[in-house]
Each structure stands twice: as C-alpha cells, then as structure tokens.
Design a protein around this nucleic acid. Sequence first.
DNA 1: TGATTTTACGATGGCCGTAATCATT
DNA 2: AATGATTACGGCCATCGTAAAATCA
Lengths: 290, 290
Amino acid sequence: MDPHLLRTFVAVAGTGSFSAAAQELGYTQSAVSQQIAALESDLGATLLHRRPVAPTDAGARLLEHAGPILLRLSAARADVARLAGEPAATVVLGATPCAGGARAAAVLASVQRAMPRVRFTLLVAGRAAVATGVATGTLDVGLVDGVTAPSDPLPLPDAGQLVSSALAESAAVAAFPVGHPLAGRRCIELADLADATWIDAPEVATPLPQLRALAHSGGFRDGFAYPGTDTGGLLELVAAGAGLALLPGPVTHPGVVGVPVTVPRLVHRTELVHGSLTPPARALADAFRS
Amino acid sequence: MDPHLLRTFVAVAGTGSFSAAAQELGYTQSAVSQQIAALESDLGATLLHRRPVAPTDAGARLLEHAGPILLRLSAARADVARLAGEPAATVVLGATPCAGGARAAAVLASVQRAMPRVRFTLLVAGRAAVATGVATGTLDVGLVDGVTAPSDPLPLPDAGQLVSSALAESAAVAAFPVGHPLAGRRCIELADLADATWIDAPEVATPLPQLRALAHSGGFRDGFAYPGTDTGGLLELVAAGAGLALLPGPVTHPGVVGVPVTVPRLVHRTELVHGSLTPPARALADAFRS
DNA sequence: TGATTTTACGATGGCCGTAATCATT
DNA sequence: AATGATTACGGCCATCGTAAAATCA
C-alpha cells in the first residue's frame, strides 16, 4: 500500500473521476487507472464502482483510514524536518476565528518586539485546517476553540504527539431568537434542544455532529448550513428564526437571546496546540501560557 | 516515505544493526543500507548514528510516528480484507491474562455450541499484543483489562475505529507486604505512594508509566521488572519486599495486604474491543455484552 | 456517438543482489 | 585483522506516458 496509491485513491474517490484526479495530481488518466488497479489487486478487493465512479463498501472503509494515514505521514515528515533543519526564521500562528482575538494579536506583537529577527505571522482558518496545519508543520503553533465538557479536551484529528493546553474557558451559550418558547429560561439542558432545528456553522459555532455526540442523541436536525466565519452573520440567521446555534460566551445581538447550557455542563474553551517547537515558536507558546 | 523504508528503519533501530535488520526482513545488508540512505536523503536528515547504530534525535522522532503509521496501514489492509473477503470460518478471541477468565471461557463455549460450523479460539497475550492484534485483524475480538479513572476509557494504541465497551469493573488495589507502614490503612491515596519502590509488571499489574500519568507524578521508582503473566508470582515478590504493585480486585496471598486506592478513584476495568465484525464475531461480542 | 476507462507497449528509472571498498574496534 | 557499513555496478521489475481498444451512457 504505497502512499502514492492511497493518495490517488482518495483523489479519485473525492472527485468521482479518474481523469479529474489525474489532472489534480499531475498524472495521466492511464497512470491513475493503473494505480487504482494496482491498489485493488494488492488489497484483493474492488474499491471503486465505475461509471459512475463511487467507492464500494471496502473502498469507503479504506477511505476512513487513508486520510489519517496520509496526515500522519506528512506529520512525521514535518516533525523530522523541524528537528533536523536549520532554525526557522519564521513562525506562523494559526487560529480559529474566535480564538484569534485581541489577546492573540497582543501576544504576537509583544513576542515580535522581543525577537525582531524572527518573522511572526497570524493566519486565521477553520478548526480542521489549524489542527492539520500544526500537525503537518505548516503552522508552528495553533489556537483552537470549541465546545466540550469541562473535563474533556477538544477533539483534534490524530496526528501524533500534539500537545494542547487550555488557555481560557467561558460558558457555552445557546442562541435563541426572541420569542422562542425557551428563550426566557435562565439556563437550559441540552437534551431539551435535540428536537429543535439547528444551524450548522462548523467554523464559528459547534459542529452539529459534535453536538449530537455531546448529548448522546441523534437529534439536532440541521436547517441552514453557515460556512462563514462571522458570528454576526450567524446571529442574523438565528434572529430570523433559521435555527439555533451553540456559541462561545455571551450573546449581544438584536433579536437574539443567549441561555447558558447546564446539563451536561459545557464550556467554550480555547486551547493552545503544537507539536515539537522551534525555539522562537516555543517563546510564542510560552507567552500565551503566561 | 515508502512504508517499506519505514519498516526497515524501525527494524534497524530496533535491532541496532543493519545486518540483523537485513536478516530479519529477508534483505541484504546492502539493500538495508541503501534503504536507510534513501530515507535519510528523502527526509533530509540523518536518522541513525553508525557504529554503534542508534537513532539520532530526528530518528527517534520518526520512530514515534513509524509505529502508529505502520500499525494503521495494516489495520486498513485487514479492515478491507475482512469486508471484501469470503466470510471467515474462524473467530479468534484475544484476551489479557486477567481478562480471559472463567466467564470468557464460558461465553466462548456457549457461542461455540450455538455455531458449531465456526471455529472459535482463545488466545491469551499482553495488552499491547491484543490491541494491535485486533487492529490488524489477527484477532477478531479482544478482551483487555487495565486500571484507569472511572470516567476514562482504557488507553489503546490508535489504529482507527476501534470500538470498546466496558464489561466489568472492580476496585483497584495496592498490594503491600505485611508490616509495611501503610499496610494497616482502610484506603489510600495514590500520591502517598509516589515515593515507594514499585514492581513494573506491565502484563499483570498497572504499567508504571501509566501509574505516573494517573498520579500526575514523576515518582514511582521502579525496582524489579516482572514480565510474567502470573499474579501469584508477582505477589511473592511483593511479599518479599521487592516493591508495591497496583492490582485488580481483592488480594489474597500470604504476606500480602491489599488496600483500595481512593484518590484518584481508580477502577480495574475489562473492556471488549473490536474493529469491524464478521457475523460470527459479532455473535461472540454480543454474547459478552449480554 | 462521445466521453471515459482500460489495455498494450516501449522507455525510463528505481531497487535489489553481488562484490569490492572503506571504516571502526 | 575482523566485523560491519558503504559504494559500484549490472540486471530485473515497476511505473509512467503514448496510443489504441473497449465500454457504458
């Protein structure tokens, strides 16, 4: 199972086309066809239905493994490179929208002042992008926020020895439109909200699948998807009655009421996450922790 | 980073010799040398010191990744094979020594009676062996026991979607030789034992590194190592004053006193663990859970 | 019929083994 | 010296690209 074959397999499964995958990877259609054939013969199973091309059961199962394997592979490469290469003259901090606030900017600026020779950069991206970026070495340090139970860490993709430490916690708040029957409550149980319609805003609120996991429930019907990274825009949708959302911290938006979730007690936590650190990156991480 | 190269790298690092690794893998010394050279040139870092051959810092880091990657790779292969291959006529149950007790045998026998066409087998092995066996498909179902906090699952090597569910829990008990100053206590805090000498018996008691993690302490000095799988033998050592041990359940052995650990509250739990299940393996798993 | 995957085939490159060389104890 | 890693070299196999054939919509 050559990683190359794995990579073209996920490309083919992702694009749903041999030719598109070939173009994406800089191969010939023929080469892709041969690679898939080789992989299938190696594993002794057909991985893809052709015309239309879609993963078989076995292929779908392989896909679940392929992503993490490829991720870990590049994490290993980046990890070794960081340890063996010359000391990097640049440090990139990745942050999710909510985590990369004023404090992040201030810390970054102060460390930059202390080490003028090193170039510090801030890069805002989604949760998954920050986590994989840190794992693969694209980012030196990550700031990730999300909602969990107080004793549990934030769920991160497995890419080896990622260190994460909590920086701050605040209450997790469910956002209702005014006039919603539950909007008057002082506090609320998550289970009561399983039947409501929710907005799936994975970048700025809590991803729905995670919400279902936290509540041990299959509910939480999703209405709109909100791929944006702007809290205000999401709250507009909530005010308009498009659905509920589980957000960090207090909600102050016309037409929206925030109620803290008490059972299970949920917190919005921002965590600092990193792999092995170059010296300047270590300085940045230490600055955040102090 | 071809998995082949990774595999020979861990073999070389493990044996501490190019020639030994070559023999182990069925290669020539020359081939191994070339593979290591290729890997080092690919990663742009020297991974091994030569003469004596020992991993460099970068090599050690790579080793931390290589194991899980290789494990996951074979897990993927096994997973696909199980899903695509013909229905297996044999089911292998792996169990750690403490977990594979009378109940395991009884359940196995009853399922065997119900499905005479399928061959059910019990295989007793260490924790790690059972877990990796389940992950790589060598074992269909695993029974693993160990000590943790009540709310935490047992730590398992990451090999994808392993399902684990608790079967039974009992108190975790620290074993003292009679006459030990703490042996008279009704209950005990783990932190009080950090300065004591412990026997490292990873197969039958709690591995010391895990103990340190549970107590958030660097203590727990290790005296003897006890690689065996026999509780009686370990308790002989305890009685002789060789050190303490953290064990499942009540201790009844001459010269040894057991005291339950209360802070943090620790339990000895046996978990049922499996990946995807063939139908007969599913029957076995269901029998255990009911 | 047309788009798309598969097969055929020749060329290139990679990898292993044999054997000679080099280095360290 | 002797053990053990590296380098040199030749042969084999794998994989890619070009191009023709086959297959499904």
